[in-house]
Design a binder for these strands. Structure first.
Lengths: 338, 338
DNA sequence: CTGAAAGCGCTTACAG
DNA sequence: CTGAAAGCGCTTACAG
């Protein structure tokens, strides 16, 4: 029956008013005799009383909850970010309400509304689209927002992101140095920041390989067939030129490697391969797959810490934090050593 | 200002009482003239009114939230399960409050309390330990619970689990048939059901390989060194006999393969390798790694569906659902073909 | 078909 | 140092 004890029961048992109990609960000991305080403490222990946080929230508008809105938890990127967020929030006495948007702007809108309605005290969002308007609106209500894994233009508040532009640029430079003549980027339509990634890649490939965006980018989904088709096409294009493919996330990289293995394509002779890999398996696949790794758990941790800070100091979130990713060059793009 | 409109504002604007608005909100149209209903609908649209769910929860004790308690989201097993749960809950208009326990019973206890305090309407739990007592207590309060990825003894309510006993048994049978003479299981101390898994493995290896539990089981963590030591030891044991190692989860399998690659151990000649792999990368690692795959997303989906059913019909959850995993025999355990 | 009133379990001016 | 009272935004007997 622990859950049924209310502040009135405690007040009665302690022989004081609800007001005094409430003050005790909120740590306002200043206005309280030591005896009263001790008595209340004892009674609360005895009755195993836990204040009802819903009632508290209704009155105070503070729920102790953070709204976390991500694309999906299905893949490591989102899951690890949320893990980091969860750890920090829990440590600070906050709970999280997690919603997945699957990249759908309307689902994101709904998720925000639901969280708002639950009186969340802050939002950590991996956004679907580029417009900052909806997030600014939240901030205007006085609710802090941290944007995660992206850097949005015109976003004056806190955000954490990875320098994908640099990572992609460096990977392409490496491919160029290794003597590759054409590159292609396999993008996932469901990805967090497909557009931004496409932009980085096409810019770098235009500069280094003289390729147009139409040449260098292909959109594939989470499903195998699209990846297979894209690879089939690439293998037949640019005859006589050395080509490389880059996969935008771990899953796409997996599908790519599986298809190349099925076709017995020799890597890197017939096709160079590289991509993002959060997990590390690419290291173990023959002949060793060159990969970009992003520190997803740190991203969540830093985002949540920014949120905690903002809540503590009662101000909007602030500061853009750029995280470094890591590059691993392995034999899958090593044309020169052969 | 959308969030600030209350039921009183709407009542005033519509020229009716709060009672009537409330009835409208809860779909009790039976006691309402068509005109009134239409007017209210219009006003609500106009003001963009959304009822405050905290106030609703306080009064009705129904929060529209499900408490989800898992070990961790860091690895695919938990993350995919939660993805499935999230999808189903969202589809049915429920939100989720996710807590990670990291396998700590006290953290689990705290998480349950926090959820209870948020008036969650049900729990989906991947439990830390074997005792059902704490979960039965929740049920006695009338709050439905689904236990996930485990089958607990004496648990009379709903649960979803994978038949690990069968999967492990079949894998060991396969190893036996392939001529392996000794087997060893690398277990993760942080795993969901380490004890149960250890039990299955030691039972099967006692029967098939005549090994004691002490011989067949090793506890390793999520960190590399413990795995390396365990492998080093195994490679020096049983000289002249063919040995195989099995990894309890994807991450442990990864660490195992990385270490074997570093040591240039020939698989399966010097050591047979198999393990759990939720992602599928093991297929791509030379010479093709035998693996067990469990349908984690389905697990979450089924668990959540059981919960929705129970909520709809206002009864405890029911039924144990055993999911089939899949076995993939590849060259890493193929001693005979060589 | 509709509404006044009490109450869910807290917090917080206000008064003493 | 302490408490009575109002109120957060809803729901729900009860009465008409």
């Amino acid at each position: 029956m622990a859950g049924r004890v209310t502040i009135s029961d405690i007040a009665k048992a302690a022989g004081v008013s609800k007001t005094t109990i409430s003050r005790y609960l909120n740590g306002n000991y200043g206005y309280m005799s030591a005896e009263t305080r001790a008595r209340i403490e004892e009674i609360i222990k005895k009755y195993n009383y836990v204040p009802n946080s819903i009632a508290r929230t209704l009155k105070s508008k503070k729920s102790g909850m953070i709204g976390v809105i991500v694309n999906t938890l299905r893949y490591q990127v989102g899951a690890q970010t949320v893990t980091g967020i969860n750890d920090i929030c829990t440590k600070n006495g906050y709970g999280t309400i997690v919603h997945c948007t699957n990249g759908d702007r309307r689902a994101e809108e709904t998720a925000v509304q639901l969280c708002l309605n639950q009186q969340v005290e802050g939002f950590i969002i991996i956004p679907c689209e580029n417009s900052v308007a909806p997030y600014l609106e939240i901030c205007e209500r006085g609710i802090p927002v941290v944007i995660c894994t992206r850097r949005l233009d015109d976003w004056p508040y806190g955000c954490v992101y990875v320098r994908h532009d640099e990572l992609i640029q460096k990977m392409l430079l490496h491919l160029k140095e290794q003597g590759f003549e054409k590159v292609r980027f396999l993008l996932d339509v469901h990805d967090f920041h497909k557009e931004a990634m496409a932009g980085f890649f096409s810019a770098a490939s235009a500069e280094l390989f003289g390729m147009s965006r139409e040449e260098s980018i292909r959109w594939v989904g989470r499903e195998s067939p699209a990846v297979c088709e894209a690879l089939d096409a690439l293998l037949h294009e640019y005859p006589g030129q050395s080509k490389a493919v880059m996969a935008v996330n771990t899953h796409t990289l997996f599908l790519t490697l599986r298809e190349l293995e099925r076709r017995r394509i020799r890597i890197p002779h017939e096709l160079g391969v590289c991509g993002y890999d959060v997990i590390g398996w690419s290291e173990l696949v023959y002949p060793g797959i060159s990969a970009i790794r992003q520190p997803m758990d740190r991203m969540g941790i830093i985002a949540a810490e920014k949120m905690m800070e903002s809540l503590r100091e009662q101000r909007p979130t602030q500061g853009a934090c750029a995280l470094e990713g890591s590059l691993f060059f392995r034999n899958s793009t090593n044309l020169k050593a052969l």
